[in-house]
Design a protein around this nucleic acid. Structure first.
Lengths: 132, 132
DNA sequence: CTTGACCTTTTACTATGGTACAGGGTTTAT
DNA sequence: ATAAACCCTGTACCATAGTAAAAGGTCAAG
């Protein structure tokens, strides 16, 4: 099957401007064109764009997704130092998880301080955080 | 003690442009000025800016930090729906923790696939993610 | 054969969170 | 008294990740 840009965008749940944006950023290759210059895409590109979105939703920057796509594209350049890249990202993710657990605890405490389940005008937790 | 903008910035570990940026965004009040128009700050503002940075580092947007500061400022408007706000943020944080745990697992698997602890040219994990 | 829906490029704009610079004024130290 | 170091405002710029609009080309249906 082959698709025009709007069909591709719809199949991937993104805006068609986003497709062109990914092309500009070299996350997807320049597609073939019809005689009139219309972009045409294959199912491979559907998979690729969905992968980009999925990785991005999981907290990867587009430049990081690009690095991962190096494996898919079997590109020597982007595969360079993959172990280092993955290790660094892993440490960041572990730190983030720790931070978020603290935040979760804080938010839970905060909720319990809301007397009427609506507003909250003073809170020793925020005040403690505020006063160091 | 009172501080000029550079001293405040240094005490809080931020750029002085960041202080002016926070002022523009109403995260800190317009400060008093010297006769010459220089901003002067109290220790309260040191605490406030440090709080902003700390919350931000934990993953809060400045607009979310502003909401939390409503409690510190005892501001009826920003304290409105605090329970709802905190609950929503808590759910987001819980979801993020789940996502990040998946990513951590993925990255760990990925590392183990790097044959020489340097590069990685093919990987069933990425391929599985890529193929849905 | 015209209308509407689609496509093209280029450029500008959005939000978030800053940073930098230009062109001034002030304060401090020598 | 003059230079360095600081301050001011305003504007422009950076990255990230898009979104929108302008001005035009293409294509299918009625």
């Amino acid at each position: 099957m082959s698709y025009r840009i709007s069909e591709l965008a719809a199949k991937c749940g993104v805006n068609k401007e986003t497709i062109r944006y990914y092309e500009r950023k070299h996350l997807i290759q320049e597609p073939n064109r019809t005689k009139a210059g219309y972009r045409i895409y294959s199912d491979d590109v559907v998979k690729r764009v969905r992968f980009i979105k999925r990785m991005q939703d999981l907290g990867f920057l587009l430049q990081e997704v690009d690095k991962l796509l190096g494996v898919v594209d079997k590109d020597d350049n982007r595969c360079q130092d993959m172990f280092k890249f993955v290790s660094k990202k892993e440490r960041e993710v572990q730190q983030q998880i720790q931070d978020l657990k603290r935040v979760e605890q804080m938010l839970n405490d905060l909720k319990e301080r809301c007397p009427d389940e609506k507003t909250l005008h003073e809170c020793p937790i925020i005040e403690t955080l505020f006063d160091e």
